[in-house]
Simulated scan of single mutants.
Amino acid sequence: MSDAPMPTHFILTDESHVKLALVSEHVRYMARLLEAGAATNLTDDDLRPDAMTWWIDQIGRELGRIVESARWTGLPTAR
């Protein structure tokens, strides 16, 4: 008999899974865009702090909606 807890499985709706994949791709794109050297091709308007704040806020909201939509088979027991 194992003392290991049963694994918890998180379930996303199809829509949330697609949104998560899109957010993942968007974050990778933004990382490439802002890599050293790549940012030299951007204008100051592209890198304005308020524009970046808006983008980070949007990603945070989308991830929040995805997390809220998740269902699980059970939560691990606190030790």
Rank of each mutant, 00 (worst) to 15 (best):
E25C: 13
K19M: 05
R79G: 14
T77Q: 09
K19G: 01
E68Q: 14
I59F: 02
V67T: 15
T43C: 11
E35S: 10
P7E: 06
P5D: 12
D57F: 01
L22T: 14
H17A: 13
W72H: 15
R79Y: 15
T43A: 12
L75F: 07
R71M: 14
H26I: 00
W55D: 12
K19H: 03
I59P: 02
R48P: 00
W54M: 04
K19V: 04
A21K: 15
L42V: 02
R48G: 03
L33G: 07
R32I: 01
E62Y: 12
T77K: 06
P49W: 01
Q58P: 05
L33N: 02
E68L: 14
Q58L: 09
V27T: 00
R61L: 11
H17M: 10
H9K: 05
F10K: 05
R61F: 14
S69G: 15
H26Q: 08
N41Q: 01
D45W: 02
P76D: 09
P49N: 03
G64D: 12
D3S: 14
A38R: 06
E68D: 14
D50K: 05
L33C: 05
W55Q: 08
I66V: 15
L42I: 05
R48C: 05
V23N: 04
W54G: 00
A4Q: 14
K19S: 04
W54F: 06
M30L: 11
V27R: 02
L12S: 03
M30Q: 06
M6N: 15
A36E: 10
R65S: 12
A31P: 06
T43K: 10
T40M: 10
R48H: 07
Y29C: 09
P5K: 13
I59H: 02
L47Q: 06
Y29M: 13
V18Q: 12
Y29W: 11
I56T: 11
T77C: 04
L47F: 00
S2K: 14
T13C: 00
R28D: 08
A38G: 06
G64N: 15
T40F: 08
L12H: 00
S2G: 12
A39K: 13
E15I: 03
T13F: 00
H26V: 06
R79E: 15
T8R: 09
G74P: 00
L20N: 01
T73W: 01
M6P: 08
A70C: 07
T77R: 07
L12M: 04
W72C: 15
I66C: 13
D50Y: 07
T13V: 03
F10C: 01
L75K: 06
Q58N: 11
L34T: 03
A31M: 09
F10Q: 04
P76G: 08
T8H: 05
I11L: 04
T40A: 09
V18L: 14
T13R: 02
R48I: 03
I56S: 09
T53N: 08
A39E: 13
W55C: 07
R79P: 14
L75M: 09
L42N: 03
A4S: 15
H17I: 08
D46M: 10
D45T: 01
L63E: 07
D14E: 05
D50C: 05
G37Q: 04
A31E: 10
